[in-house]
């Protein structure tokens, strides 16, 4: 297999794996830019993945080909609502945000598995009939080299993810809301003095992050696994969190990092059919994305410093 063939093979898979990570990492950007550490992304993604599959299974007869897309909206809403728990704990109740996040992660998985057992009477759901479709982009896919790499067999959700990253960049850097969001995460007291409602902005940010993680989870389950079980998400949320840190809390940076982690995952999946790499036992290849994540955090970013007030509840009147 030639080098170009490998690229034609790898790049689409990488982008497919990146899409859920991009959405979820963007969610992380919203939350942490407002000053709320969101390690709960994993649980929120699990919830999204579960709701996506559930909705798809139950409403395929009603919505037909549109089902997977409407399932994304359903997942978005449910995970957004679920994120309120994290918001209440970390904003109003001044909980340790990492601990609250761990609780949400456990809770998300436990609720999803409980409902799976209740509804399907087994450890995983049925397979969905209609997954998110992939297609060749007209005209663009005919361009030599770039065409087969970027525009052939691409999932609609991947395009959506890139659009979402650009919109997030616009919202955070070019709108009044974005300015308030960033100020609340850097210096909440100053923002408060200027009449910004710190806690309200943070609530909105955490709910948005839940919604985006929900979409991310539903994309993953509706493109990759096509059913839901205990190992469906298996660390994707944490990887998205790492992508956010790697991208230095910037939407476009997070997108780039997510594509990089998507590539690492693609290597684990596609590896067995690539010369040289296929010599490595698949078990080790599965560990690769996580090794790459640590290496990325250790080697390339240097000192990662998040928003200044990240992780600190805002208590009016205290310095």
């Amino acid at each position: 297999m030639g080098f170009l063939d490998i690229l034609y093979f790898m790049v689409p898979v990488s982008i497919a794996y990146a899409a859920p990570l991009i959405f979820t990492a963007l969610g992380g950007v919203f939350s942490e830019r407002s000053g709320v550490v969101n390690i709960a992304l994993e649980g929120l993604m699990v919830m999204g993945a579960f709701i996506g599959i559930l909705f798809n299974l139950f409403f395929y007869d009603t919505f037909g080909d549109w089902t997977p897309w409407i399932a994304l909206i359903a997942a978005m809403v449910v995970s957004g609502v679920f994120a309120i728990l994290h918001a209440v704990a970390s904003i109003s109740f001044r909980a340790d945000q990492v601990v609250s996040g761990v609780a949400i992660n456990m809770l998300g998985l436990a609720i999803a598995l409980f409902l799976t057992k209740m509804i399907f009477d087994k450890g995983q759901t049925d397979f969905i009939k209609k997954a998110i479709p992939n297609f060749d982009v007209p005209f663009l896919s005919d361009i030599p080299v770039i065409g087969p790499m970027l525009f052939t067999g691409i999932y609609g959700s991947s395009i959506l993810a890139i659009v979402a990253a650009i919109i997030t960049w616009y919202v955070i850097y070019k709108t009044p809301f974005g300015l308030r969001l960033r100020s609340v995460g850097e210096h909440p007291m100053a923002a408060d003095t200027m009449g910004v409602n710190v806690n309200k902005i943070r609530y909105i940010a955490v709910i948005i992050s839940g919604a985006l993680a929900g979409i991310g989870g539903a994309i993953y389950s509706q493109t990759m696994t096509r059913d839901f079980g205990h190992a469906t998400i298996n660390g994707q949320g944490f990887m998205a969190l790492a992508a956010m840190i790697f991208g230095k809390w910037h939407p476009i940076g997070a997108m780039g990092a997510a594509i990089f982690f998507g590539f690492a995952q693609a290597l684990a999946v596609v590896g067995p059919s690539i010369p040289l790499i296929k010599e490595i036992p698949t078990g080790y290849l599965h560990a690769l994305p996580y090794v790459v994540t640590i290496l990325a955090l250790a080697g390339f970013i240097g000192k990662a410093t998040g928003p200044k007030a990240n992780g600190k509840p805002y208590i009016k009147g205290s310095r």
Binding site: I39, V98, N234, G235, F238, L241, A242, I245, P281, T282, G283, Y284, H286, A287, Y290, V291, T293, I294, L297, A298, K303, A304
Partner: peptide, 29 residues
């Protein structure tokens, strides 16, 4: 990593969990 490079231990330990799972599975195989 935390001591030398100030990388937050939470994210690294989470990744180490998955590495342990997959590496041990491979070793057992």
């Amino acid at each position: 990593l935390k001591a030398k490079m100030k990388i937050h231990e939470v994210i690294v330990t989470i990744m180490m969990n998955y590495i342990a799972l997959h590496v041990v599975n491979a070793l057992i195989k």
